[in-house]
């Protein structure tokens, strides 16, 4: 069983990529490949020409926000940030990020006492608090309220403009159309296409991205 089959991709700097595809198409696996959490059975994953396989230093260049936040429950968010800084060095923008998401009153609470949405915000702060080259966000908007979602989109665009690579997976086409420069479409573990949202909408003669992707999905399942 392979979650991904011969996927060959290059991600450029200063571009936001949206990873799309139906459930189980291998989006999370691809993101975990880049992080070195899942190892490819053949082939390699390179960041700046250096492999990520068995190379923990490669993750210095990556900020990651998982689909479900993984934090120990018995500590506060502040403890988590402190712990991460001990491991990766001082964060220059931690305070700004906490303010950006408006969670000043949440970071002192125990993780287990936080709501799902607040946990996602903490997770977003943890992903962006270190200076990385690539930011990987696995369905970041799940559980976020509209304001937090808006703030996250602002952040994605800001980092892209600074020349960072942002790769995110999502099922919300409005969001993808707004922030993504390129769509990477996976189906059953295979790379089907990579295109700009605008081009895709034109090709499908659709009103918006949601319609375009819906008609692609329909064709695939016929």
């Amino acid at each position: 069983m392979h979650a991904l089959k011969s996927v060959d991709l290059t991600f450029e700097k200063g571009v936001v990529y949206a990873l799309l595809g139906p459930n189980g198409s291998g989006k999370t696996t691809l993101l975990k490949n880049i992080l070195g959490l899942v190892k490819p059975s053949s082939g390699d994953v390179l960041i700046d020409n250096k492999t990520v396989i068995n190379n923990s230093a490669a993750r210095n260049k990556v900020g990651y926000m998982p689909q479900y936040a993984h934090f120990p429950g018995n500590v506060t968010a502040n403890d988590v940030f402190k712990m991460l800084q001990k491991l990766r060095g001082e964060s220059k923008n931690l305070e700004d990020l906490i303010e950006h998401f408006g969670i000043q009153d949440q970071v002192g609470k125990k993780i287990s006492a936080l709501s799902g949405g607040n946990m996602q915000k903490i997770s977003a702060v943890a992903a962006f608090m270190f200076d990385a080259d690539i930011y990987i966000l696995d369905e970041p908007s799940v559980g976020l309220d509209p304001l937090a979602n808006f703030k996250l989109k602002e952040l994605i665009i800001k980092y892209r403009d600074q020349g960072k690579t942002v790769i995110f997976s999502s099922h919300l086409m409005g969001e993808v159309q707004e922030v993504a420069n390129e769509i990477v479409f996976l189906f059953q573990g295979e790379l089907i296409f990579r295109k700009e949202p605008k081009v895709l909408i034109e090709e499908e003669k659709a009103k918006n991205l949601e319609q375009a992707i819906a008609s692609i999905f329909q064709r695939m399942y016929v």
């Binding site: 923990s56 230093a57 490669a58 993750r59 990556v62 993984h70 934090f71 120990p72 491991l87 943890a126």
Partner: peptide
Amino acid sequence: NNYDFSMMMLTQPIKR
């Protein structure tokens, strides 16, 4: 019980 904590650490630049 520490799986979440381990997962968080594994996404950081630390050896498994």
